[in-house]
Design a protein around this nucleic acid. Structure first.
Lengths: 237, 237
DNA sequence: CGCAAACCTTGCGCCAGCGCAAATTTCATC
DNA sequence: GATGAAATTTGCGCTGGCGCAAGGTTTGCG
């Protein structure tokens, strides 16, 4: 409840966008236009922003929160392809020449999301300097991440993959706390297992072992890394 | 030798490009300009067209042959991310906002490759209608493939992955022969294992088993699928 | 033709990590 | 503070597929 209170919809204020890469170089007037055309919306934890295969009718910017990009197999298993932190565009199917979303976006926390109808895409690209470049950089970055995940899945042991995943999470979304770095959103053993292609049981065992060694501390849905260096060691082959 | 004789450098003729998606809509005059600025080159089997991390100074079109896109881990293992058939662009770092190539391109057969200096990229995008769209579609398609590979690696057994890889190869690059479909380029057990994240031993065992069941026939570096339907069965969970 | 290099096959033992099962802890709600 | 749902922990046995090793086959080359 108190959490909710903090996360009311923000006023559509210029300062929301000016510091974000795709828009940072724009004039106030341009930002104004962009904001006027945007819809703002709050999503609960676990909500789906868009679904794989759906016609891509809107594109999104994550203002606050975290999003998991997942695929679901025929047998219903979920596989997490990426984690997206706030400040990034998502659902940018047009930037990769697609008419439909290639995966499903699920909020990992309550999130605030801005969105625009896809028909504005071309306008944004032609009207706003740097927008195209930034979106292609975003795509490039994600392609890099996908490649990295493939290499990890192909060559590393489960322990290394989980260690790597944790490191990536604290790098991207870590919050410094008293004696360590905590992952900034609720994450279950199940989530971690979907991210590392293993089972929640194995993740649980690993975390227990690491906790005994003083590398991490974890409560339900919370993980704090107290000795990142040790994790780096574990993540090396 | 006779093989080589067939694969001399082609004359830079208009018909080379007119039927390829990125250029198909262009006028003869435009094709002429594009060809004038291109370099044509033949690569031996196993040659590297470009290396991961290298500054992306040129972009390429594969006119004939097949290319594997690979990453090499710190420990020297190779992981194949994609296979690219002829008629496609590659090394299009600019389309994903990168200054350097994100992976290494290795020829799987002798190949004929056209290339242009990257400084022409923006010109191509602005001057030639449909070029940008096609490149983004290419990117989109590859992102889809990468996602699929991640899901496969994460959820499937080795046997299913190898079956899937074979099916994909015969779909993309299969050549109908007397009593089956043959993969159109030399492929070793090792190659297949790098494509499916397993060992050449396991691939060898699987192929032997399948050969006994009459699903495939294979010689050194050659694989022919005689019963694709059975493979489809095996590829399902 | 004979040799070396590259490629392929097969047997055997082992173990990381999964599946199953059951118990326990934590949290939200009334 | 009682109840139920969700998340987590832990034990145990089994097995897919890897590592190791040895031997066989095909191809290219001097």
């Amino acid at each position: 409840m108190t959490e909710n209170a903090k996360k009311i919809l923000p006023r559509l204020d210029e300062s929301l966008l000016t510091h974000l890469p795709p828009f940072s170089k724009l004039e106030r007037r341009q930002i104004r236009v962009i904001l006027d055309q945007a819809s703002s919306r709050r999503y609960d934890e676990g909500a789906h922003i868009f679904e794989e295969g759906e016609t891509a009718e809107r594109f999104f910017m994550l203002l606050d929160g975290y999003v998991r990009v997942v695929r679901v197999t025929q047998t219903g298993e979920q596989v997490t392809a990426l984690h997206i932190p706030s400040g990034q565009l998502l659902g940018i199917a047009k930037a990769i020449g697609r008419e439909s979303y290639p995966a499903t976006a699920v909020t990992a926390t309550e999130s605030i999301v801005l969105s625009w109808p896809m028909r504005l895409w071309d306008t944004f690209v032609t009207e706003y300097d740097g927008f195209a470049t930034e979106t292609y950089k975003t795509v490039g970055h994600r392609v890099g991440e996908l490649n990295t995940r493939i290499v990890e899945l192909a060559t590393q042991q489960v322990e290394q993959r989980v260690a790597n995943a944790l490191l990536r999470l604290i790098n991207q979304t870590g919050r410094k706390v008293d004696d360590g770095i905590e992952i900034d959103f609720p994450i279950t053993r199940q989530d971690l297992s979907e991210l590392t292609a293993t089972t929640l049981h194995t993740v649980s065992r690993l975390l227990s072992a690491w906790e005994k060694q003083g590398i991490v501390e974890s409560k339900r849905k919370r993980i704090k890394v107290t000795d990142p260096h040790a994790l780096v060691e574990l993540s090396q082959p």
